[in-house]
Write a protein that binds this DNA or RNA. Structure first.
Lengths: 159, 159
DNA sequence: ACAGGGATGTTATAACATATCAATCCCGAA
DNA sequence: TTCGGGATTGATATGTTATAACATCCCTGT
């Protein structure tokens, strides 16, 4: 299941590929992929972990791309709406999407040690919760599925 | 006010029963179920929906049980640790548990109209996400499963 | 009496997020 | 060309959620 998990990979290439995907996606959708938004996504991709809005803002500020909170929140809002990033509700933090803009219902494995995030997929609405919702007449619009714990790298060393 | 699973019920009896369960649970576990904590749980039970910490604080303050944020957060922390309440991460809000302190991995249906919350159960860790976690060597400690949408009562009237 | 732990009171501040309005840029219509 | 509108960005202020830090009180075992 598609998680780019907690494993090593060619990160430079990974970032470049995802940026290219994002650019293509925005072009196709008629979305305005401005410098601030590009840089925001690039920062999230490079980190490959959950980043707070103010962490992102600090890095944007280093590049002279804005220093006030709305700058970061606007960029994040754009990325989330475009499907290029996700909010991790349990951390009030944000992470780049690894599925390049396709429609999906993400599920996350979140390491509390290093805040690394692996993205998987769920069919939650067709499972037990979906049944419960249907039985209650509840109309599901959005799902949040987040599992917190320790990634392999953080299990050994620190207790 | 609405819902245990979004349906009508004898709420006074419901609250009383849950409070009795909570008291018994705390006694059994040697937990100190103080007046502030009792009142906090009672408020959550009466509302039967997600309540912000500051909403709770306001109601506690009306009873002269404290007026500063830590009062509310300490009470909520106690209730959550004791399994008597849950945090709804997607709303940064809190809700009384309807399963009286038993160990469980809760899943929620959250109405964005009235903030009513229905609590179900998941076997998430044994499902697809569990498999993904196992494959990645990820150790799950806690899960957050929250479905947002509209409850039956909020689907018809307001758009 | 007194030490220690748990609960609470109090002050202050950290961390996360948005409202509002002004300035700018780009593009298409008149 | 000029105008106007929409989208984006800049800037200020503020709202909302959460915790740190330290003082006090009260109960309990010695």
């Amino acid at each position: 299941m598609a998680a780019i998990g907690f494993c090593a990979h060619d990160h430079t290439a990974c970032v470049a590929e995802m940026m290219a995907h994002a650019e293509a996606h925005c072009a196709a959708e008629g979305l305005n992929f401005t410098p601030v938004r590009q840089r925001a996504l690039e920062i999230l991709l490079r980190e490959h972990r959950a980043l707070g809005a103010y962490d992102l803002l600090a890095q944007l500020a280093e590049d002279g791309l804005g220093s006030q909170p709305p700058v970061a929140y606007r960029a994040l809002d754009f990325l989330v709406k475009a499907g290029l990033a996700h909010k991790i509700e349990a951390l009030n933090a944000y992470v780049a999407c690894v599925h390049s803009g396709a429609e999906h219902t993400p599920a996350f494995l979140i390491c509390r040690g290093c805040r690394a995030v692996a993205e998987a997929d769920t069919a939650l609405t067709s499972g037990r919760l979906g049944e419960a919702a249907a039985a209650a007449g509840f109309h599901i619009e959005r799902t949040v599925v987040e599992a917190q714990g320790l990634c392999p790298a953080c299990q050994g060393p620190a207790p």
